[in-house]
Write a protein that binds this DNA or RNA. Structure first.
Lengths: 250, 250
DNA sequence: CGTAGACTTGACGGCACTCAAACAAGGTGG
DNA sequence: CCACCTTGTTTGAGTGCCGTCAAGTCTACG
């Protein structure tokens, strides 16, 4: 009986299952097998490091609430964020097979998370081939986003790049039942955004103001809203197909 | 008996198995199961498109020789290359679970390749959990490289970015038995490189000349050699850990 | 020998950077 | 309850990396 070690409330996994089932149905046995393996939820304040670069975690971390980021540090102290994670995302599922993490994962906001041992994940892959493919899929969804960010960094102007991120986060949060595509919680600082967009904080600030002036963005406190969704998507050349929001047999 | 449909020579899969076994041992049964499923090899000339954006391929393509690239096109015709593939790489293994491709794959040089049906891959994942994890791993290796490119585009100067790519390709080719880290075949044009690095072709040319002037790069015809490997690595802040070249139990 | 594609060079312009300072807001302690 | 500090945002001035445009050169190949 896992009452003491497991999650206090299975409903905490809702975003996780929603993320997967948005792409393909899970069987009740698959859901149960997964749910049993998660440990008790834990919390961390904003700025805390969940896993450090070079570590070899023995478990993977599922984000339950808040926002985290994958970050790499340069020699001169500059930082590049390679991904934002939202609730329902595994922040380091790849460490299950990669073993050593090549980047750190930090809490951008206060977060809640739960973990699952790699040994347990291995057992899942031995017994549940379809569930195993769905976990694989979860990492593939991440890399599709990575590719899109690469395009943004390589070929989009700062303005379009910013617009693109706001479009993306709306859809990703909405896909796990948090907010709507044009209105959502996003408690990151402009400095965090700068590290994600490969820009200076100063320039991000100017770009944000430009988006505001064009009536494409309202962003006060931690609430983002996009008053003209078509407009901002056009500016960003945003095409949501890379997010793979269709249900398919996988 | 698969003689007619299968590969003419199993030795063609050497780079593929070498890529995987560099990271973990495969069993003879796993090797055999995989090898049987590949179709007869085919060729394509430089510039040809292997899979197009938006397609839903029913098979995945394994590169046997040559170089390919994953490319996304922007509205104005600009191109961003998000990855180079070398022999032994699956160029679109992710389409097995993602179903629809969000980018195209093009031959940069003349290539040979072979394919495996998604239905066969699914059977592999049902019967061979460890092999299945190794295929998953193959896609994770790709995304680790993606993350490193993101860092390059976001935070590295054009010079360091170029240096980094030359370091990376040497190690990747060497890892599948082609060339050495400081001397290898790399038949891409400066325009291709520009699309990969998010720069203009003109500026790439200037950066290449800069590397030459510093005695860090010799690149004539299709042969790259790096006369001062330590020097170019230092300039690039190159750390090979992201390539996951260690053998581990996975 | 002519042509196409790749590479190279120069002039000029702009997007985004750095440096520096001011402003806003929330939290803390005296 | 207010002074003070910290963190985040905003603004301005000056700079530089890299882009564009436009030629010109080199090489492979038919």
């Amino acid at each position: 009986m896992m009452t003491a070690q497991g999650l206090s409330d299975p409903a905490l996994l809702q975003t996780f299952f929603q993320r997967l089932e948005r792409r393909d149905e899970l069987g009740p046995d698959e859901r149960r097998a997964m749910a049993e393996l998660f440990r008790h939820e834990r919390r961390l304040e904003a700025g805390a490091e969940i896993v450090g670069e070079g570590e070899r975690p023995g478990q993977s971390t599922l984000l339950l609430s808040g926002i985290t980021a994958r970050a790499k540090l340069m020699g001169d102290g500059e930082r590049q964020i390679t991904a934002f994670n939202v609730p329902g995302d595994f922040v380091d599922l790849h460490s299950f097979l990669l073993k050593e993490l090549d980047h750190s994962v930090v809490a951008i906001t206060p977060i809640e998370f739960t973990q699952i041992a790699h040994a347990d994940l291995e057992r899942v892959t031995e017994r549940f081939p379809h569930l195993s493919r769905m976990l694989w899929l979860a990492t593939l969804l991440d890399s599709a986003i990575n590719r899109e960010w690469l395009v943004g960094l390589g070929r989009r102007s700062a303005l379009a790049r910013a617009a693109h991120i706001f479009c993306e986060m709306g859809l990703r949060l909405n896909a796990v039942g948090l907010g709507s595509p044009d209105n959502y919680e996003f408690a990151v600082t402009q400095t965090d955004l700068a590290d994600a967009m490969g820009l200076s904080a100063v320039h991000v600030n100017r770009v944000i103001q430009d988006l505001r002036a064009r009536n494409l963005l309202v962003w006060q406190g931690s609430r983002v809203s996009l008053p003209n969704l078509d407009g901002i998507r056009e500016l960003a050349e945003f095409d949501d197909r890379y997010l793979n929001l269709m249900k398919e047999r996988r």
